[in-house]
Design a protein around this nucleic acid. Sequence first.
DNA 1: AATGAATGAGGCTTCATTCAT
DNA 2: TATGAATGAAGCCTCATTCAT
Lengths: 208, 208, 208, 208
Amino acid sequence: MAQPEATGDSRRRANWQARREAIIDTSARVFARQGYHATGITELCTANDLGKGALYHYIGSKEELLAAIHDRVMDEVMAGADRVARAGGTPSRQLAMLGDELLDVIHRYPDHVWVFLHEFPALTGERAEQFRQRRRQYEERVEAVLQAGVDSGEFRPVEPRLTTLAWLGMHNYTYLWLKAGGPLTARDVAKPFAEIFMHGIAGEPGRV
Amino acid sequence: MAQPEATGDSRRRANWQARREAIIDTSARVFARQGYHATGITELCTANDLGKGALYHYIGSKEELLAAIHDRVMDEVMAGADRVARAGGTPSRQLAMLGDELLDVIHRYPDHVWVFLHEFPALTGERAEQFRQRRRQYEERVEAVLQAGVDSGEFRPVEPRLTTLAWLGMHNYTYLWLKAGGPLTARDVAKPFAEIFMHGIAGEPGRV
Amino acid sequence: MAQPEATGDSRRRANWQARREAIIDTSARVFARQGYHATGITELCTANDLGKGALYHYIGSKEELLAAIHDRVMDEVMAGADRVARAGGTPSRQLAMLGDELLDVIHRYPDHVWVFLHEFPALTGERAEQFRQRRRQYEERVEAVLQAGVDSGEFRPVEPRLTTLAWLGMHNYTYLWLKAGGPLTARDVAKPFAEIFMHGIAGEPGRV
Amino acid sequence: MAQPEATGDSRRRANWQARREAIIDTSARVFARQGYHATGITELCTANDLGKGALYHYIGSKEELLAAIHDRVMDEVMAGADRVARAGGTPSRQLAMLGDELLDVIHRYPDHVWVFLHEFPALTGERAEQFRQRRRQYEERVEAVLQAGVDSGEFRPVEPRLTTLAWLGMHNYTYLWLKAGGPLTARDVAKPFAEIFMHGIAGEPGRV
DNA sequence: AATGAATGAGGCTTCATTCAT
DNA sequence: TATGAATGAAGCCTCATTCAT
């Protein structure tokens, strides 16, 4: 990862970090609007009000910047999943919370998520591999909850992987239209989605 | 649109058309693997075993080629929606058929669909506008079915637009993993998805 | 190596080759004057009266161009060594001929040789390895002649490797000042050099 | 030339000088390995364990650093030539001593000499001119010794300039393979080289 | 129908150097 | 003394497209 030379006082280091984060966020917006490949370094410089040399001082490379945007999303998504795991509760309660958390990330980071879902094929080599692993880890969290619900009889005996993919599609796809500042909150969407999905896979009444 | 000189006889015209279709399909595969922007004209030439001049003879421009891939998908998707409309039936039956048809397209044209869902922001100007309209038309077909079901009491009084988006997300998102030649048929996926969704929005029993 | 697409008629191919050779020669002159690293692609374009794209059509990359210059020299040098080997004769006669041939190359290709002797460290990877091998092969030709002379008693029992390096230094170093168009011919230099070297390593009279 | 503020006391000045010398030597090694143009300021900073500002405090500019490396070599070479001149003796004795001294410099400063012989075209303006003059001065020392030997009959009536260039080539070219720490000392090379050259240009016996 | 040479704008990245701290 | 953030020109190379053949 790009980073300032190791020596030097921590104040400088903190400044550098803060500036880097700002650049990541600003660039995510540009990428979301124009696409990663369609956005040139020059445009990023303009958007961040920085010369080329200075920009590279912070980002290392264009692809590293892309990876940082991915990480930002994955960090938030995994943090949400961790909160849910710590909260405990029934599978259906957990699944609902996972939906709340996921849509909250999509709602708060619409640009980052757009980039995440559109441009991940632009990651290469080790970065691509690491990203795929984290994404898969998250999916397995969802799948585990579904499996638990099936095992407990709270859910119908659905095929867990397929059902996970259905759930992910339903929620992830909101990146196309769900944005902070728009008319809907994350909760406005999460609730009806949870109702659809819970009813959709609920165990037959009186069977538990 | 690119086309051979109008003076040519229809045989020549048909040959040109056939070759063009083949190029569109081959190019869709390349775009799906590497991304639209990341794929150069030279790569398309190699993939299609054609020189640059000849390739341009058929495609007009790179963006026109992209638009053609989009059209291929939209033509199929709209044709499916038309078949469903002609078939008639209850809203839930129609919705199930729409899912069948949509997943069938995704299954048969995985590359085209990947391009469609990933690269649509690369379309510009009039082509972008036209594409957005057709996509919106399709969404309205789905939304109309949902509304009909709500009106008839067959579905719960869900918010139609939001529910449409949930349905679309669940189905469209399969483009990431559903492919012809894979272990699953379109029907293998469409059926459990329909069950989840139908149960999820079903009207309360005994209320219709 | 850069080359036009394999198909196509041989006339085109020949044209391409000829143009490429001309570019190699012109670029050698520029590199010799300014140095390889100090010369930009833009300068090469100007010198060759070609746009960037067209230049790259012929050279593949800057380093490939550099390698081609090296090859041009090595081809000539090895061809000279082959002529000498075919001509046969006593070791001292062979050594004299090797000097004639080597200085002839330096005289005829002063720019290429300058580049060859100055910029070989800029070659990397496989190209560097291949070049080093050919250069070593040539040195071994010289060393073998010296060894033969020592064995026959025509030369003093000098250390062959060290003596080879002395001979190479004496001859190669002329690249700094020997040029076609200058006051001296290759022969003007080769003759006195051979006299110095032959006397210098001659076997004691009456010992053969 | 870069130097610390004139106001500082001489202790500070001496420290600065020492540090500067260390930087010159370290940088020579890096330049010798990678080439002058191929080495960035950042690499020099790493090699010298210094930040950019501090490095510039000592070197003034990259080209000034290059000039300092050249000067280091020329100072040593000229000092050797001076010692020879002071020692006196016959032309052949002087020539032998010049060879000893020259190879000793090459042996002790292999990196500096490599840079000297490879990168001198990178010097510009006044620095280039000054360097060329010193180099020429040294060559004239050698040429004068040869001329003296010819005049005295100790040497054959060789062309002095051409013979100087032969002698220089033979000795300078050792920079490619003669290094401190290697298997050969400077003397190991100087002696056989002197024997070759002395025999090579010796006056006919009984003619003096 | 088809070729591939040519264009020249723009791609991402690194350069040597300066300067506020 | 020393730092590293900033500059902006220049680095090498690829781009989509055109056109004479």
